[in-house]
């Protein structure tokens, strides 16, 4: 019961973060929201007994990808001005 509730809660927050990432006007919020999607998805993977995938998602999806996006955002901003 608690397990199901937790999974549903995590799923809803993943969807909310994904919607934020799509509809927000500021790019930096979109990038952070993408990181949040990965983070919640990795917890969901962990709950569903796939720790290997969860580790990959947490390290690459929510760590490195966010960082690389931020690097690129910084570069784009510099060129715009």
């Amino acid at each position: 019961m608690i397990f199901n509730l937790l999974a549903i809660l995590l799923g809803i927050s993943t969807i909310v973060f994904a919607l934020v990432a799509i509809y927000t006007k500021k790019l930096i919020f979109a990038i952070l929201a993408t990181g949040g999607v990965s983070l919640f998805a990795s917890i969901l993977y962990l709950l569903m007994a796939a720790p290997d995938v969860a580790l990959t998602e947490a390290a690459i999806g929510s760590g490195l990808t966010t960082l690389i996006f931020l690097f690129i955002l910084n570069k784009i901003k510099e060129e715009d001005v």
């Binding site: 720790p51 290997d52 969860a54 580790l55 990959t56 390290a59 690459i60 760590g63 490195l64 960082l67």
Partner: peptide, 24 residues
């Protein structure tokens, strides 16, 4: 993480990502 890939969750890709975040 990558040495213990056959004993615990983890492995080459995850360990490599952790190393790269160290470099970052």
């Amino acid at each position: 993480v990558f040495v213990n890939g056959h004993l615990s969750p983890g492995g080459g890709f995850q360990g490599g990502a952790i190393i790269a975040s160290g470099v970052a």
